[in-house]
């Protein structure tokens, strides 16, 4: 009956995961988070949810992969996901920086043109 009666930690993790998902959804609704960046967070939440319900799962997968200590598999996956996401953010940042540069150039040109119009009037 071990799998039917939820442990405290199981309830906590399920609630925390759902809370996190609610937070992400709210941010999207308010327009503070773009959908494309939310995909990775939804994916993480779903993975967390799956393992919250299926507690034996992590152990089974670890065993299948020959990982001696199951939580270390979790850490490995989490760190991998974080690294990928950080690289993604750096790419987004670089793109933004180059767009800002182009925009600043255009603004400077417009300002210069406007100044010329003012002085000619």
């Amino acid at each position: 009956m071990e799998n039917v009666v939820p442990f405290k930690i199981q309830i906590i993790s399920i609630l925390a995961t759902l809370g996190f998902m609610y937070f992400i959804v709210r941010q999207i609704i308010r327009g503070k988070l773009r959908e494309e960046y939310s995909i990775v967070w939804f994916a993480c939440t779903i993975v967390l949810l799956v393992f919250s319900f299926w507690r034996k799962g992590l152990e089974q997968i670890s065993q299948a992969l020959g990982v001696f200590y199951p939580p270390s598999l979790l850490f490995l996956l989490a760190i991998g996901a974080i690294v990928i996401f950080l690289v993604h953010l750096s790419i987004v940042n670089s793109k933004l920086q180059s767009q800002i540069k182009d925009l600043s150039h255009e603004v400077a040109f417009l300002k210069e043109k406007q100044q010329k119009v003012i002085t000619n009037e």
């Binding site: 800002i100 540069k101 600043s104 150039h105 400077a108 040109f109 300002k111 210069e112 100044q115």
Partner: peptide, 13 residues
């Protein structure tokens, strides 16, 4: 003539 950049871009920009 004068170009006034709205944000600091550094020497290259």
């Amino acid at each position: 003539l004068c170009l006034d950049l709205p944000v600091n871009l550094g020497i290259g920009g």
